[in-house]
Amino acid sequence: MTSEAIPPEARPRLSRRARVQTDKVTGKPVLLYPEGVLLLNPTGHEIVKLCSGDATFEEIVTSLAGRYNLPAPKIAAEVSEYLERLRARNLLDLLPQPSDGGEDRRTA
């Protein structure tokens, strides 16, 4: 499914439909949602943790680029691809600029 790219100033937030917890069987993080499960790899888990609605897409990329010591464009491409997978399942809200008091599309 095609979509517009995530704008750098958007603040991704994991949907309230999703819950992250530790899997009893493997001890690894899993993302649960109404119809399924995503097993999170370490990078995926890092990305999801940063989707709190506070940081912008650009800030998430900068933070991960610093942590993994990799060029920002490469990280941006990977984060974008990962977030699109969540968006395709409607597991990610994209909040607008912070000046609006943090309202999202449901309460706007």
Binding site: M1, T2, S3, R87, A88, R89, N90, L92, L94, R105
Partner: peptide
């Protein structure tokens, strides 16, 4: 509809 509602309703 999938295209129109992408990111809003799966």
């Amino acid at each position: 509809a999938k295209k129109r509602l992408y990111g809003k309703m799966e």
